[in-house]
Simulated scan of single mutants.
Amino acid sequence: MRSDPTPTTRVLYLAGWGRSGSTLAESLLDQVPDLVGVGEIKFLWERGLQQNRRCSCGTPLRSCDFWVQVLKEAFGGIPGDAEAGRLDAASRRFRTRHLPGLLLRSAGPPDTEELRWYFGVLRRLYAAVAEVSGAKVVVDSSKFPSYLTALLRVPGLDLRVAHIVRDPRAVAYSWQRLKHDPDAPNGALMPRMHPGFTALYWSAWNLATERIARRAGLPYFRFRYEDLVADPAGTVRSVTRLSGVPEAELPLDGRGELLVRPTHQVSGNPVRFRSGAVPLRLDDEWTTRMPSRHRYLTGAVTVPLRHRYGYRDS
């Protein structure tokens, strides 16, 4: 597939386990010229087209000028419900349940040969995003390591992996919070998960991401949420270098807040709806509010990977 004669679209894949700060990272990267962040493309078909949830610009996706142009460029118009359902079903073939296989063997999810049409759709979609936005790099924060294996099969993609990690105890605490999802049907809350399961997923997703990127020989850079907040300009410069575009200064005001212009992210944390002056502050509430039993459980399950990423016991 790497010899496919179709034009190449460069894609920066933001990987990592949920609640690790990928939406914030993408919002920062979207401020860099030549980069365009479009959220979690994996969920475009279900949340964007079938459920018509809001783009991060605040407009329902089927009415968003940006996405209307992208879909017209890629497919000649907005796919109907049946086609969106077929594409969502194909996307679901690359599921988290395949992670054990991804960690233990070189083969990807089964029966991918029959999905050549789906890979062709993704090729046209990413190319259309680049064409409509005028950006040189499309930033996709889908995060799933299993979905990354799908992108490896898409002809005409130049993949780079930016892997964000966060202290697993902070992640586990975040998954326990009661959070309203302003874009979910019927005003639902964001999903919650027990710290033990969060710790297992944190370990599996991060290990799988490393293994897939290394096995495929992809350009790869790992960075920490804590470092992104402490030094946003320096961290973004490192990711920008991975992307292969010129470095640029982030639009920070005198108080260190980021001046965010509206973005067009498909899905992600509700922070994607924020624009204007956005404070960049470390969310470390877990250090004082997390129950001790959850802290010890999460810490025990995530050793030694947690230590390798620089998160010690103190």
Score class of each variant (00 low, 15 high):
Leu258Asn: 05
Val271Lys: 04
Leu258Ala: 02
Ala300Asn: 10
His264Phe: 02
Trp286Ala: 08
Ala208Gly: 03
Val239Lys: 13
Val245Tyr: 13
Met190Lys: 10
Arg289Trp: 13
Pro232Cys: 09
Pro246Gln: 05
Gly244Ser: 10
Pro232Ser: 07
Arg224Tyr: 06
Gly234His: 10
Pro304Lys: 10
Ala216Cys: 11
Leu259Gly: 03
Pro270Asp: 10
Arg289His: 12
Thr235Leu: 09
Val229Tyr: 08
Ser267Trp: 01
Arg281Leu: 11
His264Cys: 01
Val236Gly: 10
Leu189Phe: 13
Arg211Phe: 00
Leu280Val: 10
Asp283Glu: 14
Ala208His: 03
Tyr220Ala: 12
Arg281Glu: 15
Leu280Ile: 12
Asn206Leu: 06
Met290Asp: 10
Pro262Val: 01
Pro246Asn: 12
Asp283Gln: 12
Arg281Trp: 07
Leu207Asp: 00
Val260Glu: 01
Ala213Pro: 12
Arg274Asp: 04
Leu228His: 05
Val229Cys: 05
Pro232Arg: 08
Leu250Trp: 06
Arg211Asp: 12
Phe197Ala: 02
Tyr201Phe: 11
Asn206Pro: 02
Leu297Gln: 06
Arg222Phe: 04
Ala300Glu: 04
Tyr296Thr: 15
Ala300Arg: 10
Ser275Lys: 05
Ala204Val: 14
Asp227Trp: 05
Ala199Thr: 06
His194Ala: 13
Thr288Ile: 08
Thr287His: 03
Thr263Val: 00
Val303Lys: 07
Leu305Trp: 00
Thr287Glu: 15
His307Met: 13
Leu228Tyr: 08
His307Leu: 15
Ala300Gly: 15
Val260Asp: 00
Ala216Leu: 10
Ser275Arg: 14
Thr288Pro: 01
Arg211Lys: 15
Arg222Leu: 07
Gly310Leu: 11
Glu226Cys: 06
Asp284Glu: 15
Phe197Lys: 12
Arg272Asn: 09
Gly256Ser: 02
Ala230Asn: 03
Met190Gln: 14
Asp284Phe: 08
Leu228Cys: 09
Phe221Val: 08
Leu228Thr: 03
Arg215Ser: 15
Arg211Pro: 02
Glu247Leu: 12
Arg241Pro: 03
Arg214Phe: 00
Asp284Ile: 06
Arg261Trp: 00
Arg222Asn: 12
Leu305Arg: 10
Asp227Ser: 13
Val260Cys: 01
Asp231Lys: 14
Pro246Asp: 11
Met190Ser: 15
Val245Leu: 11
Tyr201Cys: 08
Pro262Thr: 08
Tyr311Leu: 00
Thr209Glu: 02
Ser203Gly: 03
Gly244Asn: 04
Glu285Trp: 07
Ser267His: 06
Pro279Ile: 13
Arg306Gly: 11
Ser243Pro: 14
Pro246Trp: 05
Glu210Asp: 14
Asn269Arg: 11
Pro291Leu: 11
Pro279Ser: 08
Val245Gln: 02
Leu250Glu: 01
Phe221Tyr: 14
Ala199Met: 00
Phe273Cys: 03
Arg255Asp: 15
Thr288Cys: 04
Ala208Leu: 10
Val229Trp: 05
Leu280Gly: 07
Val303His: 09
Trp205Gly: 00
Arg281Ser: 08
Arg192Leu: 04
Arg274Thr: 07
Met290Lys: 03
Ala213Phe: 00
Ser243Thr: 07
Asn206Lys: 05
Thr263Leu: 00
Glu247Met: 06
Thr288Ser: 14
Glu226Arg: 15
Asn269Glu: 15
Val301His: 02
Arg274Met: 06
Gly276Trp: 07
Gly196Gln: 01
Arg241Met: 09
Val301Ser: 09
Leu258Glu: 05
Pro279Glu: 15
Ser238Met: 05
